[in-house]
């Protein structure tokens, strides 16, 4: 479904963040992306989300070379991808409920059709009593769970999660991991970027490890 071939990325004139990276993300697959801080995990996810273009090499998403994708097609392509940003990017003037419903709203869906889905999902991530809270009053872990719920709400074909358990306790981390696995079982390919070894040990999944600009794949 997603294929990287000899991808290189450099910011400006600095040394390459990624060099000769090749891998594939099959449909319905589950993988961790790991590596030390600054290794380029976020950068790799941005390439996958098409908010960055590689300096070298080629990337194909859903069977299309991203170099040939027109600007106006991007939103439609992105609707097939769910992202949990490392810095959450919630809209502060909207309630938790509305933040999670936002992807459905901008896709022109009718609210009566998704209202219970949104509250069910928020219940699952433990925010059932915070539906009307605004992001500025939420804790870091609560914001993170809102961001996760927003990424999952429309059952994307691919989920890209950048440190999705960075701000929660181990118990909640396990719960969120279960959510990702469940989503994966229902057909979504999942990429979880993390340096939480404890989290990775709970699942026997493929590991993509970034180190010194190179990517090694285990499993």
């Amino acid at each position: 479904m997603i294929k990287f071939e000899n991808v290189g990325l450099r910011y400006g004139m600095e040394t390459e963040v990624l060099r000769d990276v090749s891998f594939e993300i099959p449909e319905r697959s589950f993988q961790f992306l790991t590596g030390p801080s600054g290794a380029g995990k976020t950068s790799l996810l941005r390439l996958l989300f098409m908010s960055l273009r590689p300096t070298r090499g080629s990337i194909s998403m859903f069977g299309r070379d991203i170099a040939t994708i027109e600007r106006h097609e991007l939103p439609i392509m992105r609707r097939r991808i769910g992202v949990v940003f490392q810095d959450f990017r919630l809209l502060d003037h909207m309630t938790t409920y509305e933040n999670v419903a936002l992807p459905l709203r901008v896709r022109g869906k009718d609210e009566s059709g998704f209202r219970s889905d949104v509250s069910d999902l928020l219940n699952w991530v433990g925010l059932g009593d915070k539906l009307h809270a605004l992001p500025p009053v939420l804790s870091g872990g609560e914001k993170q769970r809102v961001a996760i719920a927003r990424a999952l709400i429309d059952q994307p074909e691919v989920l890209l999660a950048d440190e999705p358990t960075g701000n929660v306790d181990p118990h909640m981390a396990r719960r969120l991991l279960r959510l990702f696995l469940e989503l994966n079982r229902s057909g979504t390919a999942v990429v979880v970027a993390t340096h939480d070894l404890g989290l990775m040990e709970q699942v026997d999944a493929r590991r993509m490890i970034l180190n010194n600009s190179h990517l090694d794949i285990y499993g």
């Binding site: 939103p75 609707r79 990017r89």
Partner: peptide, 9 residues
Amino acid sequence: VLHFVGARA
């Protein structure tokens, strides 16, 4: 954010 959650320009 709107752009990234798939809203058209």
